[in-house]
């Protein structure tokens, strides 16, 4: 993970973090899309292709002073909305916005 480029130092300054969220059907859940894509790859001659799964990728920005805070926010969003824990799992990465902490309002 990148470093926060400007530290908050208790002033309330916040960093903009870019989160990249990946959502997958649980390994135990059959993925018919993945199967269809795998069969298409085989038809094209890519016999080496196996275990194809089709997931979702979402990108969003969050403002938070610290990375842990940003991670907590994204985790809450995943648990409540972005992912349905009945049949899906998720992973995400966070990246501090490269040009610094402040976006002009």
């Amino acid at each position: 993970m990148n470093q926060v480029l400007q530290t908050a130092n208790g002033t309330g300054a916040q960093t903009v973090w870019t989160a990249l969220v990946q959502v997958w059907l649980k390994p135990s859940v059959f993925d018919p899309q993945g199967r269809a894509v795998e069969e298409a790859l085989h038809t094209l001659g890519y016999a080496a292709a196996a275990q194809v799964r089709v997931g979702k990728c979402m990108q969003l920005q969050v403002r938070a002073a610290r990375e842990e805070e940003a991670a907590d926010l994204v985790r809450q969003m995943c648990d409540q909305v972005l992912c349905n824990p009945v049949m899906e799992t998720y992973t995400f990465t966070l990246r501090a916005k490269a040009d610094g902490a402040e976006d002009a309002p």
Partner: peptide, 17 residues
């Protein structure tokens, strides 16, 4: 109803696509 948790489970893409 399943998304809101009022009923259990989920409805996924049909097996045959």
């Amino acid at each position: 109803l399943t998304e809101s948790g009022l009923l259990p489970g989920a409805l996924l893409r049909n097996r045959q696509l």
